[in-house]
Design a protein around this nucleic acid. Structure first.
Lengths: 208, 208
DNA sequence: AAATATACTTAACAGTGTTAAGTATTGTGT
DNA sequence: ACACAATACTTAACACTGTTAAGTATATTT
């Protein structure tokens, strides 16, 4: 039993080593430069060794994606202290923008790339837990906003999609470099925050 | 002069043949199955012939992208007849959703993939004309809405980004298959339209 | 000490974008 | 009509990619 645990730990260690190397490459050089052989070279193993720890490249990318969701959850730790649900919603959107701008490679993988979803499709429990959790948190806040009469009533799913869509849309356009030629680089971040602010204010039905 | 024109036409013909074949593959089988050799096989030419008509794959994808923008512009022909600018804005959003749902491969290429923007970066006149035009049309309508006191005043760029972001976000999440596990497939389209409707109504400051 | 399981590697397959060099075919000038 | 040159295209190759089958040491168990 002890030996088995030790073995498992050693296995886990190399698995983590692979993920760390993969992370380093795709954060520093982009997803297009992330190849199995590249990772293998970095950690001085043969390329095929990686297939002893991951079914295929999609599997590896999916795991990286999950790490991304962990990091994203972390930056939302500052939400609980905010009483006003609309303010909390606003902050959540700002966190989302911050995350996307600071970790574009993660964001691309989590929401734009096909690989993680292709991996998900092959899994037994094919629920998208990470996405589900993040969306559930958003919906909770929206429910609060509606209960306190701060935003117009409506189907929670519909409102959640609209709000998620907005912040995702902004980040996504940025990550996919669609802003570069349209908005001055130095003003992108500010424009995004002001867009979110405009949305929140438009949605706010208090004091009107 | 006549012969030269004839030659040019013949050149254009093969160029179009390549684009047609490329279009067929990536619409029917997805971008990941679109390879230079695949196109070449379809039109019974060698792979290298394609490089006589396009600098590289990015160039080819950029041209396909431009075709996508043409098609997108077409479906906005129904806007001019709508007097109320807020209604026109709403319809423009619905058109955007319709386009994205009916041509996911085009949409992916136009707004998510890196290739077209990488091509653009290598070009002399590196303005993103297509994106610029589409955004300009959106801004025009927003200006009208503000002038007629239909939506809250604010920086045009900021508002345009917020609205474009919203519809793009919805489509993008769909095209990248992030809705599949979260929203029932049969309800996705309806949810998207209702999200847009909710946004428009939230933004509408008439009769409040 | 023999058998077996573990951890890893080598070699290979089929595919990718891309380039250099070569080959017909066609058009032009004398 | 003949030589020259431009045009249109192909063959072969390079350096990659993900992935798999088969082989090899090493360590563990019996």
């Amino acid at each position: 039993m002890v030996t088995k645990t030790r073995k498992t730990n050693r296995k886990e260690e190399l698995r983590d080593l692979i993920l760390d190397a993969a992370l380093k490459v795709f954060v520093e050089e982009g997803l297009e430069h992330l190849s199995i052989r590249r990772i293998a070279d970095m950690i001085s193993y043969s390329a095929t060794t990686i297939y002893l720890y991951f079914n295929d490249k999609n599997h590896l990318l999916f795991e990286l994606c999950e790490l991304g969701f962990l990091r994203m959850a972390e930056i939302n730790n500052n939400l609980s202290s905010i009483q006003n649900p609309l303010e909390r919603l606003h902050r959540m959107g700002e966190n989302y923008i911050t995350f996307g701008m600071e970790h574009p490679a993660y964001y691309d993988l989590m929401f734009n790339q096909a690989a993680p979803m292709e991996r998900l499709a092959t899994m037994d429990n094919s629920e998208w837990d990470s996405g589900d959790k993040a969306l559930a948190q958003l919906k909770e806040i929206i429910v609060e906003c509606i209960e306190q009469g701060m935003i117009r009533k409506g189907d929670i799913d519909v409102i959640a999609m609209a709000i998620w869509g907005t912040v995702h849309g902004l980040i996504s356009l940025r990550v996919c470099k669609r802003f570069d030629k349209l908005v001055d680089a130095s003003e992108v971040l500010q424009t995004m925050h002001r867009s979110l602010e405009w949305l929140i204010q438009s949605v706010d039905i208090t004091e009107k």
